[in-house]
Every structure is written in C-alpha cells, then in structure tokens.
Amino acid sequence: MTSDIASPIDTSLIDIVKVTKTYPPDIMALDDVSMSVGHGEMVFLTGVSGAGKTTLLKLLCFLERPTMGLIEMNKKDISKLSGHDLQKMRQHIGVAYQDFRLLPKQTVYQNIALAMEVRYETPKDIKQRVLELLANLGLADKIHTPTGKLSRGEQQRVSIARACANKPPLILADEPTGNLDPAATALVMNLLKRLNEDGTTIIIATHDQSIYQKSDHRLINLENGKLQEIIKVNFDL
C-alpha cells in the first residue's frame, strides 16, 4: 500500500514521493512513503521508537539518501544536487538532533555561533542572535559554560537554539522535548511556534503527546516505516 499524504497548502516546500529506505542487511526503515509539507507549515511526526521518524528527518537533511523514491525540496530533486548545492541547502535547514551533536568542550555560545559562522555572519549579529535565543530558552546564565557540563535538558535546548540560530526556512526537530521538564518544554515550543508564525516550516518528530495534543497542526503517524493515517487535521492557517 502506498501512503500518500499531501499538504493542504498549495505550494509545497517538501515533496516525498514513494520513498523507501532500507539498511543492510534488509531492515526496512521507510516503506513507500509519500507526503508533502507546505511552506510555513508545522507538522508533527509521531510513532513509536523505530517507526522511521528519525530516518525520515535524516533523509530531509541529506544525512542519508533514499534507497528508492524521490525527495524534492522547493521542487528540486535533492539527489541531483551537487555537493556544493547540498552544503548551501543545509545552511537553510536547522536541525535539532536527538543526540544533540554538540561540541562538549566548547561553550554554549560557541556551539550556537558555529551555525551562523558557516554563513559568515558578522560577530555582532551572531552575538545578538545567540543572546536572544538563550534568553528565550532560559539559558542566558549558561552562555560561557562548556556544553559538556550541562544537563541533558540544557544540552537539548542548546541544540534547538543552534537549529534556530540562522532563522532558517525549515527546522527539523527530532524529539526536541525528550529530556525537558514541562517549563522548559513550554519555552521550546513557544520559540518554535513563534518561528512558525514568522513563516518557518517546522517538522517535529516526537513521542511527547503533550506538545501536539493541544496543537492545531497536522499530525502524521509512522508505523513500521509506513505512513498510517492523519490522526488530526485541524488547520487554522
């Protein structure tokens, strides 16, 4: 069965067409998945562990290539992009990884600034943006702390801050609230919501029902690598 979930928004940012991803020897992570995500949409990707959420996000940020199928970003087939174009495109995607991928010896400031430095932003702009993000995420007092000395919840927020630093048009967040208490979860979700209101497309892979239960946004469920159903569609765009 091919599951196909189209975006309710006419102009899609992401189009995934019949995508399959298998890992050796024969582990099917994604099976014939088709879906699209519109510009400025916020989508929750749900499913149990091993359902294929992280794999789908990895495909969207070009960390993995699909075994079969087509992924288009802004109507461009990403498999046909050159190395340089892919690098440039990655600069426009903010990713908050499940395992954070922070540099433990570098400070909170340095870790977040790195995302802006690859785009040659000025030190002044970098400082201003980092301070703003840290204030929003309740980490202002940790600015000079090496990330290796932070709690997992704090590290998770640094990872989210880095993903948001460039105000990218697309943010992919893998379990962004997995290690957070309710107060910190609210801070993170408020930040993501504000960015979404400003036009950023956001895809959140999560188990955490609390963050999507009261949400009006689209919910896509993955089960054993297949898109199952749209559990809730309640758009208010």
């Binding site: 960390l63 440039k88 990655r90 790195l114 690859v118 785009r119």
Partner: peptide, 16 residues
C-alpha cells in the same frame, strides 16, 4: 574531527 563532522551537518562549504 568532531567539529568538522558537525560543521558538515551545519552546511559548512568546502571553502569554509
């Protein structure tokens, strides 16, 4: 090495 790997994820170009 670790930093370079993260830089790749962040979209650092060859030139960078």
């Amino acid at each position: 090495q670790e930093e370079l790997e993260i830089l790749r994820f962040l979209g650092a170009t060859d030139r960078y």
